[in-house]
């Protein structure tokens, strides 16, 4: 079945949508301020929505990270990617990630990095990331229990 999937921007008026999507999809909860910061310009925030038949169902939020003392950006870090459960498996997550890859490339950044549960890292691996292994205490720091996080890395080719 052909479905209409489209991407759109974050605006001050639809900020509540990513908050909603993340709050029902992710184990970690972020406060309003954290989301608000992504509206700040020139701070390297990369946020995009995905719409399924006009309905916002997914969002990716990432940042361009420049290491201390470096002039050019070091990598892109994915803060969150989430697709509402009923809308998973339709290629929406992939579409958002593809967008991020393109954005990174236009900035001449060679790496995308993220952390995730073992299960979601499986998904990242399916998208070409390499599993960099467990990061001890990563979730503990965020007040979460359970398995440790895995780091995943995608190297971009030009």
């Amino acid at each position: 079945m052909p479905f209409k999937i489209a991407l759109d921007d974050l605006t001050p008026n639809n900020l509540g949508v990513i908050e909603k999507i993340n709050s029902v999809c992710l184990p970690v909860q972020f406060d309003h301020q954290w989301y608000k910061e992504s509206l700040e310009e020139n701070q390297g925030h990369l946020v995009k929505y995905a719409f399924f038949n006009e309905l916002p169902v997914a969002a990716i939020k990432a940042r361009v990270i420049t290491k201390k003392g470096h002039a050019s950006p070091s990598f892109v870090y994915i803060d969150s990617i989430a697709v509402l459960e009923a809308y998973r498996g339709y290629g929406i997550g992939k579409k958002l990630l593809d967008w991020l890859v393109e954005e990174s490339k236009t900035r001449f950044i060679h790496k995308i990095q993220c952390h995730g549960w073992k299960e979601s890292v499986d998904w990242y691996v399916k998208q070409g990331f390499t599993n960099e292994g467990e990061v001890k205490g990563y979730y503990e720091k965020q007040g979460l229990t359970g398995d440790d996080a895995n780091a995943a890395l995608l190297s971009l080719e030009f």
Binding site: N13, N14, V17
Partner: peptide, 9 residues
């Protein structure tokens, strides 16, 4: 109000 927050416009 929670619906309003999804679309302030």
């Amino acid at each position: 109000n929670s619906a309003r927050l999804l679309d302030l416009q």
